[in-house]
C-alpha cells in the first residue's frame, strides 16, 4: 500500500504509512508536520514497531504533543498536535 496523506476535517490530517519500514514513517511524519499549520493535528497510522519510538522522540525534540497513542494488533495510530 502506498503512503497516503488526507484531510480528515478542518485542521486534522491523516498520514497512512502502513506497510512502510524504517525510516519512511518517521521521515513522512516529519515532512507533513513541517507543512501543516501550528495547532493542527496529524494522525499517523503505521505498522512498523520501531518507528513508534523514533516518532515519539522526534516529537519530544521538536515540541509537538502526541496526545493519543494506540497499538491494535501491530497497527499504531499516533495523534500529534503541531507545536
Amino acid at each position: 500500500m502506498a503512503m497516503k496523506v488526507d484531510k480528515k476535517e478542518e485542521g486534522v490530517y491523516t498520514l497512512d504509512c502502513q506497510g512502510y519500514v524504517c525510516p519512511h514513517p518517521q521521515i513522512y511524519t516529519k515532512k507533513v508536520l513541517e507543512k501543516i499549520k501550528s495547532g493542527n493535528v496529524l494522525e499517523v497510522v503505521f505498522d512498523n514497531p520501531s518507528s513508534s519510538e523514533s516518532i515519539s522522540a522526534m516529537c519530544v525534540k521538536a515540541g509537538h504533543d502526541i496526545f493519543e497513542k494506540t497499538n491494535t494488533g501491530g497497527k499504531y495510530v499516533f495523534s500529534i498536535r503541531k507545536k
Binding site: C22, P23, Q26, I27, K30, S50, E53, S54, M58, K61
Partner: peptide, 20 residues
C-alpha cells in the same frame, strides 16, 4: 531494544533523533 544500527545513524541524520 529495537537494536538497529541503520536506525541509529539514519534517524540522527534524517529526523535529528539521537536516541538509538
Amino acid at each position: 531494544g529495537r537494536f538497529c544500527f541503520a536506525s541509529a545513524f539514519r534517524d540522527l541524520f534524517a529526523v535529528g533523533v539521537p536516541r538509538m
